[in-house]
């Protein structure tokens, strides 16, 4: 099944703010994670980071091929893409209940913790611009952003069928995807 990860981006060098990077994941029979189609789109460094993380993880994702079906060139900051790319690798897990998710947050590629999200308010505004969704979409964001300042911003998302999923680390996402055997020392 074709699955999507949307990464809201606002720090654009050229275009107007408030759009999504769209990563598409399609299952394959074998071959692990294939990110060849993502290369040469301005995210080669991110891909290298993700590949390094994947080789060190004991939890291996199901075979899938990733595509960037919607992206913008000349992004001034691509740090937030790391988490989206890494989660996209695990979207084809058999027990993963989501067909579309939205992800934001900076990933520490050594500790796999999700620290914060740059321009969080602007990204929430991007989500609000989506309007009400016909099907529920999970929104993974750093738990540290769940504070009083952002509470009012986040509140309308539930009414738009966007389910809030605050996370501390990548493991929270993997457990949510049904990879229940995951432990932090894995």
């Amino acid at each position: 099944m074709r699955k999507f990860v949307w990464v809201p981006v606002v720090s654009l060098g050229r275009e107007a703010t408030g759009q999504f990077l769209e990563i598409m994941s399609e299952p394959t029979l074998m071959g692990g994670i294939n990110m060849n189609a993502l290369k040469n789109c301005g995210f080669n460094k991110n891909i290298a980071h993700i590949e390094a993380v994947l080789t060190q993880l004991s939890v291996k994702p199901s075979s899938a091929k990733l595509y960037l079906t919607g992206f913008l060139v000349n992004l001034s900051n691509t740090q937030g893409v790391n988490l989206g790319l890494l989660i996209a690798c695990f979207m084809q897990a058999p027990a993963c209940p989501y067909q579309k998710i939205i992800v934001t947050g900076n990933l520490d590629t050594e500790k796999l913790t999700v620290t914060d999200a740059v321009n969080f308010e602007a990204k929430i505004q991007t989500l609000l611009n989506l309007g009400k969704q016909a099907e529920p979409i999970a929104f993974f964001f750093p738990r540290v952003m769940l504070n009083e300042n952002n509470a009012a911003l986040l509140a309308p998302l539930a009414a738009m069928n966007i389910r809030l999923k605050p996370i501390d680390s990548l493991w929270d996402v993997l457990v949510d995807f049904g990879l229940t055997q995951v432990t932090e020392d894995a």
């Binding site: 040469n40 789109c41 595509y67 079906t69 919607g70 992206f71």
Partner: peptide
């Protein structure tokens, strides 16, 4: 080139 790159990526949908 950048326009073409985005078009090629999007058409995979």
């Amino acid at each position: 080139y950048s326009e073409g790159l985005q078009v090629v990526s999007a058409l995979r949908k």
